[in-house]
Design a protein around this nucleic acid. Structure first.
Lengths: 239, 239
DNA sequence: CGAGACTTTGACCGTAGTCAATTTATGTGG
DNA sequence: CCACATAAATTGACTACGGTCAAAGTCTCG
Protein backbone atom coordinates (compact mmCIF):
# COMPACT_ATOMS: atom_id res chain seq x y z
CA UNK A 1 0.00 0.00 0.00
CA UNK A 2 2.54 2.61 -1.03
CA UNK A 3 2.00 5.99 -2.60
CA UNK A 4 2.29 4.17 -5.86
CA UNK A 5 -0.74 2.08 -5.30
CA UNK A 6 -2.73 5.09 -4.25
CA UNK A 7 -1.76 6.95 -7.36
CA UNK A 8 -3.58 4.39 -9.46
CA UNK A 9 -7.11 4.29 -8.16
CA UNK A 10 -8.44 2.95 -11.43
CA UNK A 11 -5.69 0.47 -12.11
CA UNK A 12 -4.73 -1.73 -9.20
CA UNK A 13 -2.99 -4.30 -11.34
CA UNK A 14 -0.35 -2.35 -13.15
CA UNK A 15 2.13 -1.70 -10.39
CA UNK A 16 1.21 -4.00 -7.59
CA UNK A 17 2.10 -6.83 -9.91
CA UNK A 18 5.62 -5.48 -10.17
CA UNK A 19 6.39 -5.53 -6.47
CA UNK A 20 8.34 -2.28 -6.50
CA UNK A 21 10.49 -1.41 -3.51
CA UNK A 22 10.44 1.97 -1.81
CA UNK A 23 13.79 3.03 -3.23
CA UNK A 24 12.30 2.74 -6.65
CA UNK A 25 9.56 5.20 -6.00
CA UNK A 26 11.44 8.01 -7.72
CA UNK A 27 11.66 5.87 -10.79
CA UNK A 28 7.97 5.43 -10.62
CA UNK A 29 7.42 9.14 -10.24
CA UNK A 30 9.36 9.66 -13.41
CA UNK A 31 7.18 7.00 -14.86
CA UNK A 32 4.09 8.98 -14.06
CA UNK A 33 5.46 12.10 -15.64
CA UNK A 34 4.84 10.37 -18.95
CA UNK A 35 1.10 10.42 -18.36
CA UNK A 36 -0.89 11.35 -21.45
CA UNK A 37 -4.58 12.07 -21.88
CA UNK A 38 -6.81 11.57 -24.88
CA UNK A 39 -10.42 12.41 -25.57
CA UNK A 40 -13.02 9.97 -26.91
CA UNK A 41 -12.55 9.27 -30.60
CA UNK A 42 -8.96 10.44 -30.73
CA UNK A 43 -6.45 8.20 -32.43
CA UNK A 44 -3.25 7.57 -30.48
CA UNK A 45 -0.17 8.42 -32.51
CA UNK A 46 3.54 8.35 -31.94
CA UNK A 47 5.90 11.29 -32.22
CA UNK A 48 7.13 12.17 -35.66
CA UNK A 49 10.16 10.19 -36.66
CA UNK A 50 10.07 7.83 -33.71
CA UNK A 51 9.68 4.23 -34.66
CA UNK A 52 6.85 3.48 -32.28
CA UNK A 53 5.54 4.12 -28.81
CA UNK A 54 4.88 1.63 -26.03
CA UNK A 55 2.44 2.46 -23.28
CA UNK A 56 -0.01 1.12 -20.74
CA UNK A 57 -3.63 2.11 -20.32
CA UNK A 58 -4.14 3.70 -16.92
CA UNK A 59 -7.81 4.52 -17.17
CA UNK A 60 -10.46 4.43 -19.85
CA UNK A 61 -11.05 2.18 -22.81
CA UNK A 62 -9.52 2.12 -26.27
CA UNK A 63 -9.67 -0.22 -29.24
CA UNK A 64 -7.47 -1.43 -32.05
CA UNK A 65 -9.17 -1.21 -35.41
CA UNK A 66 -8.81 -0.97 -39.14
CA UNK A 67 -10.99 1.02 -41.50
CA UNK A 68 -11.44 -0.11 -45.09
CA UNK A 69 -11.47 2.39 -47.95
CA UNK A 70 -15.22 1.99 -48.30
CA UNK A 71 -15.89 2.70 -44.64
CA UNK A 72 -16.28 -0.78 -43.23
CA UNK A 73 -14.57 -1.12 -39.88
CA UNK A 74 -13.18 -4.04 -37.95
CA UNK A 75 -12.25 -3.75 -34.30
CA UNK A 76 -9.54 -6.23 -33.38
CA UNK A 77 -9.45 -5.83 -29.63
CA UNK A 78 -10.40 -3.61 -26.75
CA UNK A 79 -7.76 -2.09 -24.49
CA UNK A 80 -8.67 -1.87 -20.83
CA UNK A 81 -6.90 -0.35 -17.82
CA UNK A 82 -3.66 -2.21 -17.24
CA UNK A 83 -3.26 -3.31 -20.83
CA UNK A 84 0.03 -2.58 -22.57
CA UNK A 85 -0.04 -1.44 -26.17
CA UNK A 86 2.29 -0.52 -29.01
CA UNK A 87 1.65 2.19 -31.55
CA UNK A 88 3.29 1.64 -34.91
CA UNK A 89 4.46 4.45 -37.08
CA UNK A 90 2.38 3.50 -40.07
CA UNK A 91 -0.98 4.63 -38.86
CA UNK A 92 -2.93 4.81 -42.07
CA UNK A 93 -4.66 2.45 -44.39
CA UNK A 94 -3.82 -1.20 -44.27
CA UNK A 95 -2.49 -0.78 -40.78
CA UNK A 96 -3.90 -0.85 -37.30
CA UNK A 97 -5.02 2.20 -35.42
CA UNK A 98 -5.57 2.63 -31.71
CA UNK A 99 -8.50 4.85 -30.87
CA UNK A 100 -9.70 6.10 -27.50
CA UNK A 101 -13.29 5.12 -26.76
CA UNK A 102 -13.57 7.19 -23.59
CA UNK A 103 -11.44 9.76 -21.89
CA UNK A 104 -8.18 7.91 -21.71
CA UNK A 105 -5.00 8.08 -19.64
CA UNK A 106 -1.82 6.28 -20.63
CA UNK A 107 1.77 6.11 -19.45
CA UNK A 108 4.95 5.23 -21.29
CA UNK A 109 6.85 2.22 -20.07
CA UNK A 110 10.00 2.31 -22.14
CA UNK A 111 12.33 4.98 -20.77
CA UNK A 112 11.80 5.54 -17.07
CA UNK A 113 12.50 2.06 -15.85
CA UNK A 114 15.67 1.51 -17.86
CA UNK A 115 18.49 0.76 -15.48
CA UNK A 116 16.29 -0.56 -12.73
CA UNK A 117 17.42 -4.08 -13.24
CA UNK A 118 15.00 -5.74 -10.92
CA UNK A 119 11.94 -3.83 -12.00
CA UNK A 120 12.95 -4.16 -15.58
CA UNK A 121 12.91 -7.91 -15.46
CA UNK A 122 9.60 -8.00 -13.68
CA UNK A 123 8.20 -5.50 -16.14
CA UNK A 124 9.52 -7.39 -19.12
CA UNK A 125 8.05 -10.59 -17.81
CA UNK A 126 4.71 -9.00 -17.06
CA UNK A 127 4.50 -7.42 -20.50
CA UNK A 128 5.56 -10.64 -22.17
CA UNK A 129 2.87 -12.53 -20.32
CA UNK A 130 0.32 -9.89 -21.20
CA UNK A 131 1.36 -10.14 -24.81
CA UNK A 132 0.92 -13.90 -24.78
CA UNK A 133 -2.54 -13.64 -23.32
CA UNK A 134 -3.43 -10.99 -25.82
CA UNK A 135 -2.48 -13.30 -28.66
CA UNK A 136 -4.81 -15.90 -27.23
CA UNK A 137 -7.58 -13.34 -27.13
CA UNK A 138 -6.94 -12.53 -30.77
CA UNK A 139 -7.60 -16.18 -31.56
CA UNK A 140 -10.77 -16.04 -29.51
CA UNK A 141 -11.80 -13.03 -31.51
CA UNK A 142 -11.26 -14.94 -34.74
CA UNK A 143 -13.34 -17.83 -33.55
CA UNK A 144 -16.05 -15.39 -32.53
CA UNK A 145 -16.35 -13.66 -35.85
CA UNK A 146 -15.55 -16.74 -37.91
CA UNK A 147 -17.57 -19.49 -36.32
CA UNK A 148 -19.98 -18.25 -33.67
CA UNK A 149 -23.55 -17.05 -34.15
CA UNK A 150 -24.58 -13.52 -33.25
CA UNK A 151 -25.82 -14.42 -29.79
CA UNK A 152 -22.74 -16.53 -29.10
CA UNK A 153 -20.47 -13.71 -30.25
CA UNK A 154 -22.08 -11.20 -27.94
CA UNK A 155 -22.02 -13.45 -24.91
CA UNK A 156 -18.46 -14.54 -25.61
CA UNK A 157 -17.26 -10.96 -25.83
CA UNK A 158 -19.14 -9.90 -22.72
CA UNK A 159 -17.64 -12.80 -20.80
CA UNK A 160 -14.15 -11.88 -21.97
CA UNK A 161 -14.64 -8.31 -20.84
CA UNK A 162 -16.07 -9.48 -17.53
CA UNK A 163 -13.04 -11.57 -16.64
CA UNK A 164 -10.54 -9.00 -17.85
CA UNK A 165 -12.17 -6.25 -15.83
CA UNK A 166 -12.54 -8.51 -12.82
CA UNK A 167 -8.79 -9.12 -12.92
CA UNK A 168 -8.18 -5.41 -12.47
CA UNK A 169 -10.87 -4.87 -9.89
CA UNK A 170 -13.41 -3.15 -12.08
CA UNK A 171 -16.29 -5.55 -11.50
CA UNK A 172 -18.81 -5.23 -8.70
CA UNK A 173 -20.78 -8.39 -8.19
CA UNK A 174 -21.91 -9.53 -11.61
CA UNK A 175 -21.92 -6.00 -12.98
CA UNK A 176 -19.43 -3.76 -14.71
CA UNK A 177 -19.39 -0.50 -16.63
CA UNK A 178 -19.11 -0.87 -20.37
CA UNK A 179 -18.66 2.25 -22.50
CA UNK A 180 -19.50 0.57 -25.79
CA UNK A 181 -22.22 1.69 -28.17
CA UNK A 182 -24.05 -0.92 -30.20
CA UNK A 183 -22.20 0.35 -33.26
CA UNK A 184 -18.92 -0.60 -31.57
CA UNK A 185 -20.22 -4.05 -30.72
CA UNK A 186 -21.14 -4.38 -34.36
CA UNK A 187 -17.70 -3.41 -35.62
CA UNK A 188 -16.01 -5.71 -33.14
CA UNK A 189 -18.20 -8.71 -33.86
CA UNK A 190 -18.58 -8.41 -37.61
CA UNK A 191 -22.32 -7.78 -37.44
CA UNK A 192 -24.64 -4.91 -38.29
CA UNK A 193 -25.75 -2.38 -35.73
CA UNK A 194 -29.37 -3.40 -36.14
CA UNK A 195 -28.65 -7.06 -35.63
CA UNK A 196 -26.65 -6.29 -32.49
CA UNK A 197 -29.65 -4.43 -31.15
CA UNK A 198 -32.02 -7.30 -31.84
CA UNK A 199 -29.69 -9.87 -30.37
CA UNK A 200 -29.18 -7.83 -27.22
CA UNK A 201 -32.91 -7.39 -26.88
CA UNK A 202 -33.35 -11.12 -27.19
CA UNK A 203 -30.67 -11.86 -24.60
CA UNK A 204 -32.37 -9.46 -22.22
CA UNK A 205 -35.78 -11.01 -22.76
CA UNK A 206 -34.33 -14.44 -22.08
CA UNK A 207 -32.93 -13.20 -18.81
CA UNK A 208 -29.30 -13.79 -19.74
CA UNK A 209 -28.06 -10.25 -19.31
CA UNK A 210 -28.98 -6.81 -18.02
CA UNK A 211 -27.71 -3.89 -20.06
CA UNK A 212 -28.64 -0.27 -19.48
CA UNK A 213 -26.92 3.06 -19.21
CA UNK A 214 -23.44 1.75 -19.78
CA UNK A 215 -23.62 -1.09 -17.25
CA UNK A 216 -23.89 -4.81 -17.92
CA UNK A 217 -24.82 -7.61 -15.62
CA UNK A 218 -24.17 -11.20 -16.59
CA UNK A 219 -26.63 -13.55 -14.96
CA UNK A 220 -25.20 -17.04 -14.52
CA UNK A 221 -21.80 -16.83 -16.12
CA UNK A 222 -21.61 -20.60 -15.91
CA UNK A 223 -24.53 -21.06 -18.23
CA UNK A 224 -23.46 -18.26 -20.53
CA UNK A 225 -19.95 -19.68 -20.82
CA UNK A 226 -21.40 -23.00 -21.91
CA UNK A 227 -23.65 -21.36 -24.48
CA UNK A 228 -20.83 -19.34 -26.00
CA UNK A 229 -18.03 -21.93 -25.66
CA UNK A 230 -16.14 -19.49 -23.52
CA UNK A 231 -12.97 -20.36 -21.65
CA UNK A 232 -11.08 -17.77 -19.65
CA UNK A 233 -7.44 -17.11 -20.43
CA UNK A 234 -4.54 -15.94 -18.34
CA UNK A 235 -3.64 -17.08 -14.87
CA UNK A 236 -5.81 -20.17 -14.55
CA UNK A 237 -7.11 -20.87 -11.05
CA UNK A 238 -6.05 -24.42 -11.83
CA UNK A 239 -7.90 -26.05 -8.91
CA UNK B 1 15.65 -18.90 -54.84
CA UNK B 2 15.17 -19.51 -51.19
CA UNK B 3 17.59 -22.06 -49.78
CA UNK B 4 15.04 -22.97 -47.18
CA UNK B 5 12.31 -23.65 -49.64
CA UNK B 6 14.50 -25.68 -51.93
CA UNK B 7 16.48 -27.61 -49.41
CA UNK B 8 15.21 -31.15 -49.57
CA UNK B 9 16.67 -34.56 -48.87
CA UNK B 10 17.46 -34.77 -52.57
CA UNK B 11 19.55 -31.65 -52.55
CA UNK B 12 23.06 -32.51 -53.76
CA UNK B 13 24.61 -29.28 -52.52
CA UNK B 14 28.00 -29.65 -50.91
CA UNK B 15 28.99 -27.49 -48.00
CA UNK B 16 32.18 -26.36 -49.66
CA UNK B 17 30.10 -25.06 -52.51
CA UNK B 18 28.30 -22.83 -50.06
CA UNK B 19 31.55 -21.31 -48.86
CA UNK B 20 31.02 -22.46 -45.30
CA UNK B 21 33.99 -22.70 -43.02
CA UNK B 22 34.76 -26.05 -41.48
CA UNK B 23 33.67 -25.06 -38.02
CA UNK B 24 30.30 -24.06 -39.42
CA UNK B 25 29.72 -27.32 -41.19
CA UNK B 26 29.12 -29.15 -37.98
CA UNK B 27 26.64 -26.51 -36.91
CA UNK B 28 24.72 -26.96 -40.10
CA UNK B 29 24.77 -30.74 -39.77
CA UNK B 30 23.39 -30.43 -36.24
CA UNK B 31 20.76 -28.14 -37.58
CA UNK B 32 19.59 -30.67 -40.09
CA UNK B 33 19.59 -33.46 -37.59
CA UNK B 34 16.53 -31.80 -36.09
CA UNK B 35 14.57 -32.44 -39.28
CA UNK B 36 11.14 -33.89 -38.55
CA UNK B 37 8.50 -35.25 -40.89
CA UNK B 38 4.75 -35.34 -40.48
CA UNK B 39 1.99 -36.84 -42.57
CA UNK B 40 -1.11 -34.98 -43.72
CA UNK B 41 -3.60 -34.49 -40.92
CA UNK B 42 -1.08 -35.04 -38.14
CA UNK B 43 -1.02 -32.55 -35.32
CA UNK B 44 2.42 -31.24 -34.38
CA UNK B 45 3.15 -31.68 -30.69
CA UNK B 46 6.05 -30.94 -28.39
CA UNK B 47 7.91 -33.44 -26.27
CA UNK B 48 6.38 -34.33 -22.95
CA UNK B 49 7.35 -31.95 -20.20
CA UNK B 50 9.04 -29.44 -22.48
CA UNK B 51 7.46 -26.02 -22.41
CA UNK B 52 7.18 -25.61 -26.12
CA UNK B 53 8.91 -26.21 -29.43
CA UNK B 54 10.06 -23.68 -32.00
CA UNK B 55 10.58 -24.69 -35.57
CA UNK B 56 10.56 -23.65 -39.18
CA UNK B 57 8.62 -25.21 -42.02
CA UNK B 58 11.01 -26.61 -44.59
CA UNK B 59 8.51 -28.03 -47.03
CA UNK B 60 4.78 -28.59 -47.14
CA UNK B 61 1.84 -26.69 -45.68
CA UNK B 62 0.34 -26.63 -42.20
CA UNK B 63 -2.30 -24.58 -40.46
CA UNK B 64 -3.08 -23.24 -37.02
CA UNK B 65 -6.61 -24.00 -35.93
CA UNK B 66 -9.03 -24.45 -33.10
CA UNK B 67 -11.85 -26.96 -32.90
CA UNK B 68 -14.94 -26.19 -30.85
CA UNK B 69 -16.61 -28.86 -28.72
CA UNK B 70 -19.43 -29.15 -31.23
CA UNK B 71 -17.14 -29.68 -34.18
CA UNK B 72 -16.96 -26.21 -35.68
CA UNK B 73 -13.44 -25.32 -36.76
CA UNK B 74 -11.62 -22.08 -37.30
CA UNK B 75 -8.31 -21.93 -39.12
CA UNK B 76 -6.24 -18.97 -37.95
CA UNK B 77 -3.40 -19.07 -40.43
CA UNK B 78 -1.57 -21.18 -42.94
CA UNK B 79 2.09 -22.06 -42.45
CA UNK B 80 4.18 -22.17 -45.62
CA UNK B 81 7.80 -23.15 -46.29
CA UNK B 82 10.07 -20.75 -44.48
CA UNK B 83 7.54 -19.84 -41.80
CA UNK B 84 8.60 -20.11 -38.16
CA UNK B 85 6.15 -21.53 -35.67
CA UNK B 86 5.80 -22.23 -31.97
CA UNK B 87 4.00 -25.20 -30.49
CA UNK B 88 2.59 -24.61 -27.04
CA UNK B 89 2.26 -27.34 -24.49
CA UNK B 90 -1.46 -26.96 -24.04
CA UNK B 91 -2.61 -28.56 -27.22
CA UNK B 92 -6.19 -29.32 -26.41
CA UNK B 93 -9.47 -27.50 -26.26
CA UNK B 94 -9.45 -23.77 -25.99
CA UNK B 95 -5.96 -23.68 -27.38
CA UNK B 96 -4.41 -23.60 -30.80
CA UNK B 97 -3.27 -26.64 -32.67
CA UNK B 98 -0.87 -26.86 -35.58
CA UNK B 99 -1.82 -29.49 -38.12
CA UNK B 100 0.03 -30.67 -41.21
CA UNK B 101 -2.01 -30.26 -44.38
CA UNK B 102 0.47 -32.10 -46.61
CA UNK B 103 3.56 -34.12 -46.03
CA UNK B 104 5.55 -31.75 -43.92
CA UNK B 105 9.19 -31.22 -43.02
CA UNK B 106 10.30 -28.99 -40.19
CA UNK B 107 13.54 -28.12 -38.42
CA UNK B 108 14.19 -26.84 -34.93
CA UNK B 109 15.83 -23.44 -34.67
CA UNK B 110 16.49 -23.12 -30.97
CA UNK B 111 19.48 -25.29 -30.06
CA UNK B 112 21.83 -25.80 -32.96
CA UNK B 113 22.71 -22.20 -33.68
CA UNK B 114 23.34 -21.18 -30.10
CA UNK B 115 26.86 -19.89 -29.79
CA UNK B 116 27.13 -18.81 -33.38
CA UNK B 117 26.98 -15.18 -32.48
CA UNK B 118 26.63 -13.82 -35.92
CA UNK B 119 24.03 -16.26 -37.11
CA UNK B 120 22.12 -15.95 -33.87
CA UNK B 121 21.57 -12.26 -34.24
CA UNK B 122 20.57 -12.57 -37.84
CA UNK B 123 18.27 -15.45 -36.99
CA UNK B 124 16.69 -13.61 -34.09
CA UNK B 125 16.07 -10.60 -36.25
CA UNK B 126 14.61 -12.64 -39.05
CA UNK B 127 12.27 -14.48 -36.73
CA UNK B 128 11.23 -11.28 -35.03
CA UNK B 129 10.45 -9.72 -38.38
CA UNK B 130 8.53 -12.81 -39.44
CA UNK B 131 6.57 -12.65 -36.21
CA UNK B 132 5.66 -9.03 -36.83
CA UNK B 133 4.45 -9.75 -40.32
CA UNK B 134 2.49 -12.69 -39.06
CA UNK B 135 0.68 -10.47 -36.59
CA UNK B 136 -0.27 -8.20 -39.46
CA UNK B 137 -1.62 -11.19 -41.34
CA UNK B 138 -3.69 -12.14 -38.33
CA UNK B 139 -5.33 -8.73 -38.53
CA UNK B 140 -5.94 -9.26 -42.24
CA UNK B 141 -7.57 -12.54 -41.39
CA UNK B 142 -9.87 -10.82 -38.92
CA UNK B 143 -10.89 -8.23 -41.46
CA UNK B 144 -11.55 -11.02 -43.95
CA UNK B 145 -13.86 -13.02 -41.76
CA UNK B 146 -15.33 -10.01 -39.99
CA UNK B 147 -16.00 -7.53 -42.74
CA UNK B 148 -15.47 -8.96 -46.24
CA UNK B 149 -18.00 -10.78 -48.40
CA UNK B 150 -17.45 -14.37 -49.48
CA UNK B 151 -15.91 -13.41 -52.82
CA UNK B 152 -13.70 -10.78 -51.21
CA UNK B 153 -12.54 -13.24 -48.57
CA UNK B 154 -11.52 -15.81 -51.13
CA UNK B 155 -9.66 -13.36 -53.33
CA UNK B 156 -7.98 -11.75 -50.36
CA UNK B 157 -6.73 -15.07 -49.07
CA UNK B 158 -5.55 -16.20 -52.49
CA UNK B 159 -3.65 -12.96 -52.93
CA UNK B 160 -2.01 -13.35 -49.54
CA UNK B 161 -0.91 -16.86 -50.39
CA UNK B 162 0.33 -15.70 -53.78
CA UNK B 163 2.66 -13.08 -52.34
CA UNK B 164 3.89 -15.25 -49.52
CA UNK B 165 4.71 -18.08 -51.86
CA UNK B 166 6.28 -15.72 -54.36
CA UNK B 167 8.59 -14.48 -51.62
CA UNK B 168 9.97 -18.00 -51.19
CA UNK B 169 10.14 -18.80 -54.87
CA UNK B 170 7.15 -21.08 -55.11
CA UNK B 171 5.25 -19.15 -57.77
CA UNK B 172 5.65 -19.68 -61.51
CA UNK B 173 4.16 -16.84 -63.52
CA UNK B 174 0.72 -16.18 -62.08
CA UNK B 175 0.33 -19.75 -60.89
CA UNK B 176 1.11 -21.65 -57.73
CA UNK B 177 0.31 -25.00 -56.15
CA UNK B 178 -2.27 -24.88 -53.41
CA UNK B 179 -2.98 -28.04 -51.40
CA UNK B 180 -6.22 -26.78 -49.88
CA UNK B 181 -9.57 -28.51 -50.14
CA UNK B 182 -12.70 -26.41 -50.26
CA UNK B 183 -13.47 -27.58 -46.74
CA UNK B 184 -10.23 -25.95 -45.58
CA UNK B 185 -11.07 -22.73 -47.36
CA UNK B 186 -14.39 -22.84 -45.55
CA UNK B 187 -12.83 -23.30 -42.13
CA UNK B 188 -10.30 -20.57 -42.77
CA UNK B 189 -12.79 -18.04 -44.09
CA UNK B 190 -15.72 -18.69 -41.78
CA UNK B 191 -17.98 -19.93 -44.57
CA UNK B 192 -19.64 -23.20 -45.45
CA UNK B 193 -18.09 -25.68 -47.83
CA UNK B 194 -21.00 -25.31 -50.23
CA UNK B 195 -20.76 -21.58 -50.35
CA UNK B 196 -17.02 -21.75 -50.98
CA UNK B 197 -17.74 -23.98 -53.94
CA UNK B 198 -20.30 -21.60 -55.38
CA UNK B 199 -18.12 -18.57 -54.89
CA UNK B 200 -15.15 -20.27 -56.52
CA UNK B 201 -17.33 -21.31 -59.44
CA UNK B 202 -18.47 -17.74 -59.81
CA UNK B 203 -14.93 -16.37 -59.69
CA UNK B 204 -13.94 -18.83 -62.38
CA UNK B 205 -16.88 -17.94 -64.60
CA UNK B 206 -16.01 -14.28 -64.26
CA UNK B 207 -12.49 -14.98 -65.40
CA UNK B 208 -10.83 -13.87 -62.19
CA UNK B 209 -9.09 -17.11 -61.32
CA UNK B 210 -8.17 -20.53 -62.62
CA UNK B 211 -8.31 -23.33 -60.07
CA UNK B 212 -7.90 -27.01 -60.89
CA UNK B 213 -5.97 -29.96 -59.59
CA UNK B 214 -4.29 -28.11 -56.77
CA UNK B 215 -3.05 -25.18 -58.86
CA UNK B 216 -4.37 -21.64 -58.85
CA UNK B 217 -3.80 -18.87 -61.31
CA UNK B 218 -4.66 -15.31 -60.41
CA UNK B 219 -5.52 -13.30 -63.49
CA UNK B 220 -4.87 -9.61 -63.02
CA UNK B 221 -3.71 -9.35 -59.46
CA UNK B 222 -4.09 -5.60 -59.73
CA UNK B 223 -7.79 -5.82 -60.32
CA UNK B 224 -8.27 -8.57 -57.75
CA UNK B 225 -6.40 -6.59 -55.11
CA UNK B 226 -8.71 -3.67 -55.65
CA UNK B 227 -11.80 -5.86 -55.42
CA UNK B 228 -10.67 -7.46 -52.18
CA UNK B 229 -9.00 -4.42 -50.57
CA UNK B 230 -5.76 -6.34 -50.49
CA UNK B 231 -2.43 -4.79 -49.52
CA UNK B 232 0.72 -6.87 -49.34
CA UNK B 233 2.67 -6.95 -46.10
CA UNK B 234 6.33 -7.44 -45.34
CA UNK B 235 9.19 -5.86 -47.16
CA UNK B 236 7.38 -3.04 -48.94
CA UNK B 237 8.76 -2.28 -52.40
CA UNK B 238 8.28 1.35 -51.39
CA UNK B 239 10.20 2.90 -54.32
C1' DC C 1 -12.22 -51.57 -60.74
C1' DG C 2 -13.85 -50.01 -56.38
C1' DA C 3 -13.67 -47.17 -52.11
C1' DG C 4 -13.23 -42.93 -50.19
C1' DA C 5 -12.31 -38.18 -50.55
C1' DC C 6 -13.46 -34.16 -52.89
C1' DT C 7 -16.40 -31.28 -55.85
C1' DT C 8 -20.57 -29.81 -57.83
C1' DT C 9 -25.50 -28.84 -58.09
C1' DG C 10 -30.41 -28.13 -56.69
C1' DA C 11 -34.00 -26.89 -53.48
C1' DC C 12 -35.14 -24.66 -49.59
C1' DC C 13 -34.36 -22.24 -45.21
C1' DG C 14 -32.82 -18.79 -41.93
C1' DT C 15 -29.65 -15.63 -40.04
C1' DA C 16 -28.22 -11.36 -40.69
C1' DG C 17 -28.18 -6.96 -43.67
C1' DT C 18 -30.40 -2.78 -45.45
C1' DC C 19 -33.44 1.06 -45.43
C1' DA C 20 -36.17 4.04 -43.02
C1' DA C 21 -38.73 5.93 -39.39
C1' DT C 22 -39.51 6.51 -34.42
C1' DT C 23 -38.28 6.70 -29.69
C1' DT C 24 -35.17 7.40 -26.07
C1' DA C 25 -31.15 9.05 -23.84
C1' DT C 26 -27.47 12.56 -23.33
C1' DG C 27 -25.83 16.85 -23.12
C1' DT C 28 -25.60 21.93 -23.75
C1' DG C 29 -26.81 26.70 -23.61
C1' DG C 30 -30.13 29.90 -22.04
C1' DC D 1 -34.66 23.69 -14.83
C1' DC D 2 -36.27 23.70 -19.52
C1' DA D 3 -35.70 23.72 -24.79
C1' DC D 4 -33.28 22.11 -28.24
C1' DA D 5 -29.68 19.50 -30.76
C1' DT D 6 -27.37 15.39 -31.22
C1' DA D 7 -26.13 10.75 -30.46
C1' DA D 8 -27.84 6.27 -29.47
C1' DA D 9 -31.29 2.75 -29.25
C1' DT D 10 -35.33 0.57 -31.07
C1' DT D 11 -38.66 -1.22 -34.32
C1' DG D 12 -40.81 -2.66 -38.81
C1' DA D 13 -40.68 -4.21 -43.53
C1' DC D 14 -38.22 -6.23 -46.82
C1' DT D 15 -34.02 -8.29 -48.94
C1' DA D 16 -30.17 -11.27 -49.63
C1' DC D 17 -26.18 -13.63 -48.48
C1' DG D 18 -24.89 -17.58 -46.93
C1' DG D 19 -26.28 -22.20 -44.50
C1' DT D 20 -28.29 -26.80 -44.59
C1' DC D 21 -29.69 -31.05 -46.56
C1' DA D 22 -29.32 -34.26 -49.98
C1' DA D 23 -27.93 -36.32 -54.17
C1' DA D 24 -24.99 -36.88 -58.01
C1' DG D 25 -20.72 -36.38 -60.31
C1' DT D 26 -15.27 -36.56 -60.31
C1' DC D 27 -11.02 -37.57 -59.05
C1' DT D 28 -7.27 -40.55 -56.83
C1' DC D 29 -5.09 -44.25 -55.73
C1' DG D 30 -4.38 -48.80 -54.20
Amino acid sequence: MSAVAQATPHSPLTFSALGLEDRQVEQVRAFWRTLERFGPGVQLRCREGQGCKRGVIVSGWACEMRILPDGRRQIFSFLLPGDPFVIEENTDIGGRGIVALTRLETIDWTNPLLGVADGRDALARAVEEASRIKQDRMLDQMVRIGRLTARERLLHLLLELYYRLEAVGLVRGDTFRIPLTQALFADALGLSLVHINRTLTQLRREGHILLRGGSVTLLSREKLSAIAFFHAHGAPPAM
